[in-house]
Amino acid sequence: MNLISELSVVATVSAFWLVAMIVPGLDFLLVTRLAVMRGKAAALRATFGVAVGVGIWGLAGFFGVRTLFIAAPWLYMLLKIVGGLYLFLTGFRLFMSSWQKKTAQSGHTELVSGTTRAFRAGLLTNLANPKAPVFVSGLFAAALPQHASVQLGLTCVAAMFVIAMAWFALVATLLSLESVSRIFMSFQKWIDRCAGLAFMALGLRFVTERSPG
């Protein structure tokens, strides 16, 4: 492939991935909540975690994880069950904590611990979604030529990483503004409850689904 063709492939992958990032999902929900409740620093750390997860799934997708799932369906089922349980437990803890009264001291402790754990939360939330490798594999199968070079594949993965970082960093910056967070803080309990229910619902869906699609 010549340079123009490779750039066209990267642009196609980037365009589809940008749309995938903009559509609200669990990553968006996590970064949004952290930006509003914990501030810009925590949200940006979670953003980096999400982007690292994107990079991992991008590499897995390029090197044929879908083929592996077809050859060993139990691996896909294991990923769905483990990921689903993680999401359900995360949502359950979030939902239950929304009913508890928080003192100023406990709020400060939660803020500190939430900031230090934000990267891990972003990474695990992204990796816990078993649909991600299937989507990425499908995207690469459609956009990349049959014998794409490793260099081209890595360039596409790098573009996906940058797009995830840029989009969620923008979300984190805008929603951490005091004027915006002040509004959201007045609905903190309901935001936590809705976020918790969303995580639990998707977690249950992953655990109970049995098709590898």
Rank of each mutant, 00 (worst) to 15 (best):
Ala72Ser: 14
Lys101Asp: 15
Val150Met: 09
Arg93Tyr: 14
Ala142Cys: 09
Gly53Ile: 01
Met96Lys: 14
Thr67Asp: 15
Val23Lys: 03
Pro24Gln: 06
Phe135Glu: 05
Val157Tyr: 00
Gly138Ser: 08
Ala60His: 09
Phe168Trp: 06
Val180Ala: 02
Gly39Glu: 01
Thr173Asn: 07
Met21Thr: 14
Leu204Arg: 04
Val162Gln: 03
Ala142Tyr: 12
Ser176Gly: 03
Glu6Gly: 00
Ala46Ser: 02
Val52Ala: 04
Met160Ser: 01
Ile70Ala: 08
Arg45Asn: 12
Ser181Glu: 04
Thr103Cys: 03
Pro145Ser: 03
Ala159Cys: 08
Gln151Gly: 15
Met200Pro: 15
Thr103Gln: 03
Phe199Ile: 03
Gly203Gln: 02
Gly83Asp: 07
Ser8Leu: 12
Leu204Tyr: 06
Trp57Asn: 02
Arg117Gln: 11
Cys156His: 00
Val112Pro: 05
Val13Ala: 00
Ser176Tyr: 06
Gly84His: 07
Thr125Cys: 04
Thr125Arg: 02
Val157Lys: 01
Ala121Pro: 09
Val23Arg: 07
Phe95Asp: 05
Ala164Arg: 05
Ala11Glu: 13
Leu94Asn: 07
Ser181Asn: 04
Ala128Cys: 07
Ala142Trp: 15
Thr103Phe: 10
Leu87Arg: 02
Ala132Lys: 04
Val171Phe: 02
Gly84Leu: 04
Gln151Tyr: 15
Val13Pro: 00
Ser14His: 06
Met21Pro: 13
Leu197Glu: 08
Leu174Tyr: 10
Leu127Ile: 09
Phe199Arg: 01
Arg117Gly: 10
Val162Asn: 04
Ser8Gly: 13
Gly122Phe: 00
Thr12Trp: 08
Met1Phe: 05
Ala164Val: 02
Lys101Trp: 12
Ala201Met: 10
Ser14Asp: 12
Ala20His: 04
Ala46Cys: 09
Gly64Trp: 05
Val54Leu: 07
Arg193Gln: 12
Ile81Asp: 04
Ala72Val: 14
His108Asp: 12
Thr47Gln: 00
Leu197Gly: 06
Ala121Glu: 10
